[in-house]
Computed example of a mutant assay.
Amino acid sequence: MLAGRIDPIDLDVQAIIDDELSPQARSRVLAQAAREELARAEDINARVLGGKPEHTTTVDGVAGASEERVRPDGTIVYEFNLQRGLFAWIAAELEAFAPVLSGLFAHSFLFFVDGVLTELADEVPEGEEYVFMSSVPYAGKIEGENRAPESAQAPNGVFEAVATLAQRQFPGAEIAFSYRQPFAAAASGQPDTPAITIRRG
């Protein structure tokens, strides 16, 4: 799972809470501060990913507990599943970067989970390796393998450019650009093709 995590209380705020409030009030302040941080994180995710990813809440080590149950000196942790948002972001950027003549290349991108062709619209299964590649045999020419990219619409290539942006956008994910043999579902006998690979951390 590709995930993000927030810890809502910094040490300075914790010191003020400890000095000024009763145990019950400290718990209420912790819960309120956690919810405010959650709302901020969800806003950021919505801007970056185009939606709010699912998250789990862990209160004092108990998964799924309500924030109100936090101890006065306890912890509240939110963990976001960023996996689906990451894949959707890459798919959208590949289409946006693709040069357009007939439209065939822009609609040739395929997504694989451990070598199995998978629809992004469906629930994405857990896997060790997630790969984007194209089903057209000329994808390498557009990318510029061993030469300059052939399309003026994509002077920096497509897959490598998107992989570089994804690495910056999702620094916690293991994302790489490479050329590799296509999976059977992409095209049999096709030469090495550009690909974006995301590995499970």
Results as ranks from 00 to 15, higher is better:
11 L>D: 12
30 L>G: 03
47 R>V: 07
4 G>M: 07
6 I>A: 05
7 D>H: 15
68 E>P: 07
178 S>C: 08
171 P>A: 14
144 G>T: 01
194 P>C: 00
111 F>Q: 01
12 D>N: 13
89 W>P: 00
170 F>V: 01
79 E>Y: 03
148 A>I: 05
78 Y>P: 00
23 P>I: 14
179 Y>D: 01
62 V>E: 11
186 A>R: 00
40 R>F: 06
68 E>K: 15
24 Q>G: 05
39 A>I: 07
112 F>M: 03
57 T>Q: 00
143 E>I: 10
187 A>W: 09
25 A>L: 14
25 A>E: 15
122 D>F: 10
18 D>Q: 14
63 A>E: 11
152 A>T: 03
77 V>I: 15
14 Q>P: 09
175 I>A: 10
62 V>R: 10
129 E>F: 02
46 A>V: 08
129 E>C: 02
51 G>C: 00
188 S>L: 07
180 R>P: 05
72 P>Y: 15
132 F>S: 02
169 Q>I: 05
10 D>Q: 02
92 A>C: 01
192 D>Y: 12
15 A>V: 15
61 G>R: 11
168 R>E: 13
17 I>D: 14
173 A>N: 13
2 L>H: 10
200 R>M: 07
120 L>A: 05
124 V>P: 00
109 F>S: 03
70 V>M: 04
93 E>C: 08
112 F>S: 04
137 P>W: 00
55 H>I: 10
21 L>G: 08
191 P>N: 05
157 G>C: 02
22 S>F: 12
107 H>W: 12
139 A>F: 12
50 G>Y: 04
187 A>N: 03
103 G>W: 11
141 K>H: 10
160 E>W: 09
76 I>K: 12
169 Q>L: 10
110 L>N: 04
84 R>M: 04
24 Q>K: 08
120 L>E: 05
67 E>M: 09
51 G>F: 02
31 A>N: 09
117 L>T: 06
136 V>C: 01
56 T>C: 01
51 G>E: 04
78 Y>D: 00
127 G>A: 04
7 D>M: 13
126 E>W: 07
37 E>L: 05
165 L>C: 05
149 P>F: 00
26 R>M: 12
45 N>E: 13
60 D>C: 07
75 T>I: 13
94 L>M: 03
86 L>W: 01
153 Q>G: 12
147 R>E: 14
191 P>M: 03
44 I>D: 08
